[in-house]
């Protein structure tokens, strides 16, 4: 029956199951657990195809030198790309969280009802736009604009900060970390906004009413009552957004510049773990050891997203999360 406490379960009479009921249960539970099978299949395949026997602990280093001609000097350490992933996802997530907190607060408390009903679907629609469309928009339209306007301006005003200094040749193409961060931020905002917004809406009405009745303004009720109440959900929205940002491949690949070195500044090209999986795949078709290294990086990516999502979902404590199109 319906899985709520207190509702009688009609399909399982007391006194255990008959054999027929047991098989019914087995086949049904098998259907319900299909996502689990897929997750197991993904992890098992990646473990099987990865190169941990070949690389051992040298995989955990900054030494990336895929030299197919001389396997003895070849090295496959993934830390450089972890740095690229961490920079892009962490900065993009920080920006996205600030924006989406503001947006969610605004949608829930400050917009008139007809506007807030309209605002939610528009934000959700952004989440549904294909990443390859973001990518071509970023590469063809935004990259020239960044190289001509945004990057020189940022070097001029923020150039004294470490990581913000670059020569014009370094940002000539316009592609690079800063553009990737910009695109990622826009792609993560709708997801985190939807999560925070739904958490804010799920707060018991009495709390808000009590705050307002005690004379607090809307902002004070939000700041002192509602946001502390959903702290955990906000944290979990951040985790889920991080999982999305670190796994994003296509759009980031198109705008990040794909240089397999550590970036010297925020305007330079770089590589994330996810984009490396795509950019190196062509040579990996011919060099089995490189392919194994890539599969191991894919496995790391899978483990990161698995744990981040699992923790985030447990903290969220709701049955489901909002997806593209605003369906719950």
């Amino acid at each position: 029956m319906r899985n709520q406490p207190g509702v009688a379960r009609l399909s399982n009479p007391p006194g255990g199951m008959s054999l027929r009921q047991f098989f019914q249960w087995l086949s049904g539970a098998a259907v319900a657990m299909i996502p689990l099978y897929f997750i197991i299949a993904i992890v098992a395949t990646l473990v099987y195809a990865s190169g941990f026997q070949n690389f051992g602990w040298s995989f955990f280093s900054t030494n990336w030198n895929p030299n197919p001609n001389d396997p003895s000097v070849a090295a496959y350490g993934w830390f450089d790309f972890a740095v690229g992933s961490a920079i892009t996802s962490a900065i993009a997530l920080a920006l996205a969280m600030v924006l989406s907190l503001g947006l969610a607060v605004c949608i829930v408390s400050f917009l008139p009802p007809f506007l807030s009903r309209l605002a939610a679907p528009v934000t959700d629609m952004l989440a549904g736009i294909p990443s390859v469309v973001y990518g071509i928009w970023g590469y063809v339209i935004l990259a020239p604009y960044f190289s001509k306007v945004i990057d020189p301006w940022m070097v001029g005003t923020l150039g004294f900060l470490p990581g913000f200094n670059a020569t014009p040749t370094q940002y000539a193409g316009g592609v690079g970390l800063i553009l990737a961060i910009f695109i990622l931020t826009i792609m993560v905002v709708p997801i985190t906004t939807a999560l925070v917004r739904d958490s804010l809406r799920s707060i018991p009405k009495e709390l808000e009413e009590a705050g307002l009745a005690l004379g607090a303004t809307r902002w004070e009720t939000m700041r002192r009552v509602k946001i502390p109440f959903i702290q955990r959900s906000i944290f979990s929205a951040g985790l889920l957004g991080f999982g999305r940002a670190i796994g994003e491949t296509v759009a980031v690949f198109m705008v990040i510049g794909n240089e397999v070195t550590l970036p010297t500044s925020i305007f330079g090209g770089s590589t994330t773990m996810a984009t490396l999986l795509v950019s190196q795949m062509d040579s990996a078709f011919t060099y089995p050891l490189l392919l194994k290294a890539l599969v191991e990086i894919a496995l790391v990516l899978m483990v990161i997203s698995l744990s981040v999502n699992a923790i985030g979902l447990r903290l969220l404590g709701r049955k489901t999360v909002t997806g593209p199109g605003g369906i719950e």
Binding site: A32, F38, I39, R314
Partner: peptide
Amino acid sequence: YASPRTATFARLFGNILAGTPAIV
């Protein structure tokens, strides 16, 4: 049909699969 525990796990795994990177 699922028991509360099965349902909780089924939903958790469904949501985790939705968050799995497409490239993986």
